[in-house]
Design a protein around this nucleic acid. Structure first.
Length: 274
DNA sequence: ACCACAACCTGGCCGC
DNA sequence: TGCGGCCAGGTTGTGG
């Protein structure tokens, strides 16, 4: 159930096991997994290729092949990569794809089946609609405020829009609003540059911390899963009714844009719509 | 351009 | 034990 930090942690864990490897076999057990091109073409294009580079863009795992083409995976809600040192049968029916390498094997597991893969000659058109990477320099407080300027929707909901900023999911949107001391229901366009700065800072701090602590879900590589410690540090996410760690007030849960949202009614300021 | 809402899927948990 | 209802960390498409 990955957001940016989860994907980043997994990519870092997988990179040394994938870069330089040759893809010798591709088994697709659910045709709908492949968004483009067709399943047959997808398999043909990948087989025999060497993996040049493994990257992340937003929540997308981006694999560059030795012929300059690209293999992209979006894990959506429940997608999961597992690396095995030696080939082995799929663990269960939720393993939707198996990639046999010249050394090791990669299994893609996705119970809810929302995840998708693409093979493309050029990755740019697929990635172009994404907003800036929140941990890179292109992401600025001023830019964030500008993208918020016409949006009367709640700031927390707008943070989840991949076109505004890439990779921010439901956990980190709530956590960032808490850290910025902003009520998640505040209309995005009400944010002045001061609030935008606070949110920008808070979002980056929360994402960095999650990456450093191993995010919330540990990647499984060769049967070993590191500890995922960020989960223990949630200030508000999933803590409805619990005491705020700052002021002791009871954390509230509300639904914004069909998604659960958590906040502290005392620490987080609501800017009124004019 | 923005917004609200349905759709895509399965599994886990809770209460009865 | 079974069953209904609700929940789940994401995105896209549709229609207003």
């Amino acid at each position: 159930m990955p957001e940016l930090p989860e994907v980043e942690v997994w990519v870092r864990a997988l990179r040394p096991r994938l870069e330089g490897r040759r893809i010798e076999g591709v088994t697709i057990r659910r045709n709908k997994l492949i968004a483009a091109p067709g399943v047959r073409t997808f398999r043909t294009r990948l087989r025999g290729r060497r993996i040049r580079r493994v990257r992340r863009r937003g929540k997308v795992i981006w694999v560059e092949l030795d012929d300059g083409a690209h293999w992209l995976t979006h894990l959506r809600m429940t997608g999961w990569w597992r690396h095995h040192a030696a080939p082995q049968p799929p663990a269960d029916r939720h393993v939707l794809a198996v990639f046999t390498l010249d050394k090791g094997q990669l299994h893609y597991r996705d119970p809810r089946r929302f995840g998708r893969m693409w093979w493309v000659r050029d990755a740019a058109p697929l990635l172009a609609p994404l907003g800036p990477e929140p941990l890179e320099r292109a992401f600025t407080a001023a830019g964030l405020q500008k993208r918020f300027a016409r949006r009367r929707a709640a700031v927390k909901q707008v943070l989840l829009d991949p076109a505004v900023v890439a990779g921010v999911g439901n956990i980190y949107a709530s956590e960032a609003c808490f850290r910025a001391r902003l009520d998640p229901r505040t209309p995005a366009r009400r944010l002045g540059i001061e609030e935008a700065r606070r949110l920008h800072r808070a979002l980056r701090a929360v994402l960095r911390r999650a990456i450093r602590l191993g995010s919330t879900v540990a990647p499984v590589v060769d049967g070993y899963a590191a500890r995922a410690r960020f989960r223990d540090e949630f200030a508000v996410y999933g803590r409805a009714g619990d005491a705020c760690r700052t002021c002791g007030a009871a954390i509230r849960r509300v639904v914004i844009g069909q998604r659960s949202t958590f906040y502290c009614p005392r620490c987080q300021e609501l800017l009124q719509e004019r």
